[in-house]
Design a protein around this nucleic acid. Structure first.
Lengths: 190, 190
DNA sequence: CATTGGCATTTGTGATCACAAATGCGCTGG
DNA sequence: CCAGCGCATTTGTGATCACAAATGCCAATG
């Protein structure tokens, strides 16, 4: 989810088991679960690797993020008090730091933390789980995308999200979240 | 997914293994995967059962269905030719049959087949997978809901969906799908 | 130099087992 | 008759193993 692995990275059950000091059995369960969620792909012969997403698949996942996360943000809005917004601003500073250090993994992790902090307030665990499943599928691809990118400025739409939250502006929040979530697509196109 | 099991139904690895003539190992993998997708729940001690959904959770899953399936229908609309609509009408007749026989499992299965037939045309596998994950979570609950229901008429909104498809009416299709998907909530309220 | 053939190695699969914890049933005592 | 206790049974966990298939390397050949 955090982009620790690049797309197409191969994994083995014995390797995972050794890494976490367990036998093949727990490693297999974890892998099968992640494969079911789309976080890993298994070839017909059972080989395990991180997914290499086609552009169509990326567009689809971005559309799913837009659908689900806009709804989550909308549901969180009435419950978003100043303490929450402050916390999001703190996380946003950490994102700037990660961007400045060109640390893709930190960037992805703090960026997702920013979103999750808001969505937790929506009190909608099933929706949040869906959103996280999408994040899981995009992890390696986001690493590749952000790694390719040469940017030094923090995400502009996060400021819009925070502003909309402060103003209680629901349409503005929906637009800001949709824009933020879809911005990765523009990177892809360029 | 099809409501073969009622909510809260307990399962054991050894029982599943015996039922499908395999050892505990494949049974465990299947159970862990289904648990990860929310189709089964595992207690803290690892006991397995079908989920008993709270009303809040049902509302959330219905909202997810509305979000995702409306999008799928919208994407399928431009590709929905007459052969597809004919097939959907045939399936709709099978639904009427299932309703007449008060067969909850057949009803659920054919109803989902109706939706899947349309959504397959959207060429959006990730979205369809998401929708099916939601279906999976609702299976036992749908069985309980439809089993409680005493109805003899087929779903009214399916006719609206077909009409909107024929007319190429996208807003109408979105509304019809949303209504159809959300109707189960009304059963719950009554 | 590229391609094909074969072989050693790697790798996932499913079964089995020992173990510990949880469960549930029957018994006892009030 | 009911509540509480204790033990036999059930149940999930993780390790290990045998096996078959796939993989990849290396050499032989055109």
């Amino acid at each position: 989810m955090h982009g620790d692995l690049p797309p197409g990275h191969a994994l083995t059950l014995r390797g995972i088991g050794k890494e976490y000091e367990v036998s093949m059995t727990p490693a297999r369960e974890a892998v099968r679960r992640l494969a079911a969620e789309g976080a890993l792909t298994m070839s017909t012969s059972g080989r395990i690797s991180t997914p290499e997403l086609s552009n169509e698949r990326i567009e689809e996942l971005a559309a799913l993020r837009a659908l689900i996360e806009v709804e989550l943000a909308s549901r969180a809005l009435p419950r978003a008090h100043m303490a929450l917004i402050d916390r999001m601003q703190t996380i946003n500073n950490a994102i700037s730091e990660a961007v400045a250090h060109r640390d893709a993994v930190s960037y992805i992790r703090t960026n997702l933390e920013f979103h999750r902090t808001l969505y937790l307030r929506a009190q909608a665990p099933a929706m949040l789980a869906m959103a996280e499943t999408v994040w899981l599928q995009m992890g390696p691809t986001m690493r590749a995308l952000y790694g390719r990118l040469r940017r030094t400025d923090p995400p502009q739409f996060h400021r819009l999200i925070i502003a909309a939250l402060k103003a209680g502006d629901e349409p503005g929040l929906r637009l800001a979240v949709r824009s933020d979530v879809t911005q990765g697509l523009r990177m892809l196109a360029s």
